[in-house]
Every structure is written in C-alpha cells, then in structure tokens.
Amino acid sequence: MVVQALAFYLFAAVTVACGVMVITARNPVHAVLFLILAFFNAAGLFVLQGAEFLAMILVIVYVGAVAVLFLFVVMMLDVNFAELRAGFAKYLPIGAVISLILLVELVLLGAGWAFNSETAVIASSPTPPAADVHNTEALGMLLYTKYVYLFQGAGMILLVAMVGAIVLTHRVRAGVKRQRIGDQVARSSKDEVKVVKVQTGSGI
C-alpha cells in the first residue's frame, strides 16, 4: 500500500507539474512534450485505479496518435512568440471568464453528485468483484447495451466532423498529374509495344 501511495503521489505531482509547464514553457515544442508527459502520467493514475483499459487507450489514442499530429503541426509552425505574448493582457479577461465558467461547472457537478439523494442508492448497488469482470468487458457491456445510441451518436458526430474537415480543406486543382495504379496494372506489352522490322539504311 505504501508503494501504491508513493506511486500515486509521484504520478499526480508529475501530472500537475507538467500541466503548469505546458502553459509556461517558452518553446511550443517543449510545451507539447510536457503535455505528452502529462497524458502519460494520467495513464499511470488510471492503472493505479485498476482501469487498465482506459490507461492503454489513453496512451494509444492521445499519446500515440493525437499528440503526434499535434507535435507535427507545432514543429511546422513558424510563429513569433514575442508577438503572441503581446496580446496576453488583451485576452486575459476573456480567458479568466472562460476558466471561471469551467470552475463553476466543475463545482456544480461535484455538488450535484454529493447532494443528490440518489447517490447513496447508486453507490450501494451491487458491483461484481473486480476479479470476475475485466474492465474491458465491463466497459463494452455498458457501451454497447445501455448507451449504444449515445455511443453510435458520438461516432456519427466524429465522422461528420472528419468529413467536414476534409471537405473544407480539399481543393480540386487543375493540371495535377496523378498515378493511376489500375491503368498501370492493366497495361500489357501487346498493346503498348510495337516491334518493327527496319531495313538497314532506310529508317522508319
């Protein structure tokens, strides 16, 4: 138990420290790398909670794919950060308002849970022992039965977002030479090569 507590404080401290570093790091690439470290430590916290499926998915999806693309974009950007910092005071009020709203929402959520009369009922409902049900299975059971419409709806929204992004950025340009694999494979020497017997000295 001592080891678990130590691991928790280690992961939690590193996560928070990384969160601070993300917004204070001067170099945007360093900021993204700190974000990745924060994701990684959050995955560690999930493992400590026994939610190993969520931990692995966090690493695969966020660290392995989203953050790679993010890093990719940030490395390619050529932004002047002195210029960005100049607008700091201008955008401070709106940033403060947004963060205040988020804080209030989080507090409301927590209070709503704590003071809800049904909370005790839900908390006392029987749960199968962790050894019997793997959390991958438990999540699947819940997502694909009780919440199947919400789950499918979320999937559709993401699909629409993806199609929208492609439609918005795709331009049809004239005069682009493209490789058509089908045409290349369909060619044969019979149609394309002409063997000509040439009389010496006469030319074709």
């Binding site: 692995m56 998915i57 690493v59 695969i60 392995g64 794919a65």
Partner: peptide
C-alpha cells in the same frame, strides 16, 4: 493493448 501502445 500494452504492446500496441508501446509500439505507437
């Protein structure tokens, strides 16, 4: 999943 995560 662990293997997949590490390789990614």
């Amino acid at each position: 999943l662990y293997l997949f995560a590490i390789s990614s």
